[in-house]
Design a protein around this nucleic acid. Structure first.
Lengths: 220, 220
DNA sequence: AAAATAATTTAGACAAATCTAAATCATTAT
DNA sequence: ATAATGATTTAGATTTGTCTAAATTATTTT
């Protein structure tokens, strides 16, 4: 079991995140994601290639190797378990957990993380609804669709929210929408792409396009 | 509120620890304590002096300023709270907590630590019996004496153990001696400096000089 | 297909934290 | 008081991660 620096870990995590969208990640995208310069990215890519954590040929973009993916999932596991801990045990709100977990995730001790997992009751999703990889790096990938794409009158359940700011938290709290809330779309208004939804036992209400594009659901 | 590097924090913590014994700490002692070289210590001392965390004139040793002491106590607070968490919530044993806490202590977020403190019920001592500084850096300094110096037939309570290895843990577990155990010395044997003690409601038994010199107690 | 533009890499520099080896200062013993 | 010894500092090098500016490669446009 090799250990990686905080910097290496942040690069791996970012590549994993971006890799979802495209097959290969570009230097500029990664620089943007990590708030750094393209030249720094190139330097690090050489290093991670030498450690066999990613495939990389100059000018051709890069993608994680199987080993790189395993390492990235380990980091994501740590991050999301700490987020769960912070929200569940220390009463942190949604928008506060990420920043603290960014630091805690780099404390890499298998026993610590596995015991924390057990202590928390083996949670399967973090406070934003994102799945937590298990001890073996397995992660539930439920087929999630954007609320804005949900067909009319089909029931779905909120599984995640792609924006983690306090602004959206405030709005969701006000509307009593949480991870796990069941809802259905009653009507769409093409004027502004707003939609009327019914959530839980509440009366129907409308939400904006910005909001519906941020909420992800799955069918139940 | 300034942030310090992991390295700076480790130096400050080590100086605080050594400072207890002598008024001023020497380059070699600190190098020994941190498993590094004297030249590295001198470099860091210049840096910490520039940051007004310690008093230092070349060749004269060094000691923490008021600010340096405050920072050191903050690190010790974090370390000991995490040790308590690991032992109490994650079922780590005594000898396992230190190493993990060495990493966790460098995650510096006031809200995290204060909430953790609250969650743990504001513990006053860590699993080895060492006092935990509170939010303001105040720490209970009970007058502790070495068990080997305890007068005959006076009752005392175990408050800490200066060795944190698994070997001593095994022995103490076997003898049912823990932090908080009440005991008294019945007899001393000058042949090998062993002593007969009575702990709790157990029958009296003898302990070696090595052990009695490692256990610290206070009168009750 | 060549020119213009965008993306990426290279070259060279810097700060932090460390090291070794040499030089300097302080202390101790004669 | 001076030589020997030990402690400490300085000088110069190394590694990691970063940067800027210049050079190179890829892509797009005409």
């Amino acid at each position: 079991m090799v250990n990686y620096s905080t910097s290496e870990e942040n690069y791996l995590k970012a590549i994993y995140r971006l890799n979802g969208a495209e097959a290969t990640v570009s230097t500029n995208d990664l620089a943007q994601e990590l708030q750094t310069k393209p030249a720094s990215v190139t330097d690090m890519m050489k290093k991670l290639k030498a450690k066999k954590l990613l495939h990389y040929q100059p000018y051709q973009g890069f993608r994680l190797t199987a080993e790189g993916t395993k390492v990235a999932l380990g980091i994501i596991r740590r991050h999301r378990l700490w987020e769960f801990f912070l929200a569940e045990k220390l009463r942190f709100t949604w928008d506060e957990v990420h920043e603290v977990a960014e630091d805690l995730e780099h404390v890499c001790n298998k026993k610590l993380i596995d015991r924390l997992d057990e202590y928390l009751g083996f949670p399967r999703v973090d406070p934003h609804g994102d799945p937590i990889p298990d001890m073996n790096g397995k992660m539930e990938v439920s087929k999630k669709i954007c609320l804005s794409d949900l067909p009319l009158n089909s029931t779905a359940q909120v599984i995640s929210v792609s924006d983690h700011s306090s602004d959206i938290l405030e709005l969701l709290e006000h509307m009593h929408i949480h991870i796990g809330t069941r809802l259905e779309v009653r009507k769409r208004f093409s004027f502004d792409d707003s939609m009327e939804i019914k959530a839980g036992r509440q009366a129907a209400f409308t939400i904006s396009r910005q909001l519906s594009e941020t909420i992800f659901v799955h069918f139940v």
